[in-house]
């Protein structure tokens, strides 16, 4: 996998020299993105194998909520049964569709085995390179999971009451931003590998925070006192926001979530910039 993207990068190197204007220099990331997409299309079969896990998790969740709602079907935390299950299916779709080894494993490995030294000196900004590559990965996977989610939802849960197709573009934008924010945080954790040997345990904790609070439940289910706090965490922008818009859309809510996401993109970007700069500095001092 590395080799192909490596060659894509070297093509960019020839095409763009350092004095080119910014929009031409930015093109390299699109080329990286495109070559990863092409590459991943070949792994469609492997991606489809992951469907099984997605199916099982949703199957368990459907059974769980069926049981929890019982026969009365009273709303829980303001969600009807269909809404609740669709919410979980959407967040799980983001969870599975955005899975990718690049931000979590690849970066740590690059740093630990010293490959980073060669990448720092390439004419691209390493964090952008990683993000472009990662985006190439999920843009093949996510639509496949989305298709599966729709088929499974329609077959096993039924139509979502009050769903508005017109809201879809806004929802998709939210999903994309959410995944990017998530990737940013995961990248930041991976960059910790500059200082510690194994950053994976920190990834697990971050993942579980997102999973337990944002993926398997909507935030409204938690005690009211905790909710304002959760709204400040990345959970709100990564998975709760997009899924909430699918099951219960309102223009006001959409604006609120988009604003929060933009703030997070900005903050995440600055954080990556600072951590990466510090890491590279350490690299030059200690020689890897």
């Amino acid at each position: 996998m590395n080799r192909t993207s490596g060659s894509a990068a070297s093509i960019c190197m020839k095409a763009v020299d350092g004095s080119a204007p910014w929009y031409r220099r930015g093109r390299k990331y699109i080329v990286i993105y495109r070559s990863v997409v092409m590459e991943n299309i070949q792994y469609v079969v492997n991606i489809a194998m992951g469907f099984l896990s997605y199916f099982i998790i949703n199957f368990v969740m459907i059974n769980l909520w069926d049981y929890m709602y019982g026969t009365s079907g009273e709303a829980i935390a303001g969600y009807g049964k269909e809404q609740m299950i669709w919410y979980v299916m959407i967040t799980e779709m983001i969870w599975f569709g955005a899975r990718g080894a690049t931000v979590a494993r690849q970066v740590s490995t690059d740093i630990r085995n010293g490959n980073i030294v060669y990448m720092v000196n390439k004419p691209y900004y390493y964090p952008f390179y990683v993000m472009a590559k990662y985006t190439g990965e999920w843009s093949v996977q996510l639509p496949m999971y989305a298709g599966l989610a729709v088929v499974m939802g329609m077959a096993m849960v039924g139509r979502l009451p009050g769903f508005r197709a017109a809201a879809l573009p806004a929802v998709i934008l939210c999903v994309i931003l959410g995944i990017t924010i998530n990737a940013g945080f995961k990248l930041c954790i991976s960059l910790l590998s500059f200082w510690i040997e194994d950053a994976h345990p920190f990834q697990w904790l971050y993942d579980k925070l997102i999973l337990v609070i944002g993926v398997i439940f909507p935030i409204e289910i938690f005690p009211e006192k905790l909710q304002p706090f959760f709204r400040l965490t990345p959970i709100y922008t990564v998975c709760y926001g997009p899924a909430k818009l699918v099951v219960d859309f309102s223009g006001e809510k959409c604006m609120e979530i988009l604003c929060a996401q933009l703030l997070y993109v900005l903050a995440g970007g600055i954080l990556i910039y600072l951590v990466y700069r510090k890491g590279v500095k350490k690299l030059y001092v200690n020689g890897g």
Partner: peptide, 20 residues
Amino acid sequence: FTFVTNIVFMMLNNAAFIVQ
């Protein structure tokens, strides 16, 4: 350090589901 964080964080990781 890695050994201990792996163990402790895995325990915390599992404990997160108590919330659920």
